[in-house]
Amino acid sequence: MELQLLVNGEQRSVEADADTPLLWVLRESLALTGTKFGCGIAACGACTVHINGTAARSCSIPAAAVQGQAITTIEGLAGGAERHAVQQAWIEHQVPQCGYCQSGMIMAAASLLAKNSNPTDQDIDAEITNLCRCGTYERIRRAIHAAALNISRGDVEATRGEESKEARHG
């Protein structure tokens, strides 16, 4: 069937079976390969995207079910800015190792910060349940706190960019 998807602020029309997970439509139909396949059962979070600004695991959401909703992938997170505050913090703290899980981690962290601008360690533990096999958790925690600080200091361009784009199209 033909699906109408709003991805990173653009209307996209794709042909896919109704039950195709959003993950595979993003990766194979739209060539947005920054969103990764890890488990297929929503257990690892490598496929995390934003749906209307909230983190969601795209391997277990039929693409047909999110037509008309604002879908943001790692490629669109910065929303026109060079980098989102979370991406910047990820570089400053040299978080990624193999990097495969990090798109999902960054999307999960950005979603957390959008809801909770100053998360505690307990908030991070509760909200960030993505898996990283390289074991970068210590740096992820540090980078989330750093991103929160940068956003509170006024470095909010990237997050605003994403929200405004979603508001404009959504």
Binding site: K36, E75, L77, A78, V95, G99, Q102, S103
Partner: peptide, 27 residues
């Protein structure tokens, strides 16, 4: 020294084997 592979690993542009796309590719 900051790692040279890290910037591409925060914006989804790093390409892994699973991301390869060849014209006419089947799965």
């Amino acid at each position: 020294i900051p790692r040279i592979d890290i910037p591409s690993k925060v914006d989804g542009s790093a390409k892994y084997g699973i991301d390869v796309a060849i014209p006419g590719m089947l799965y």
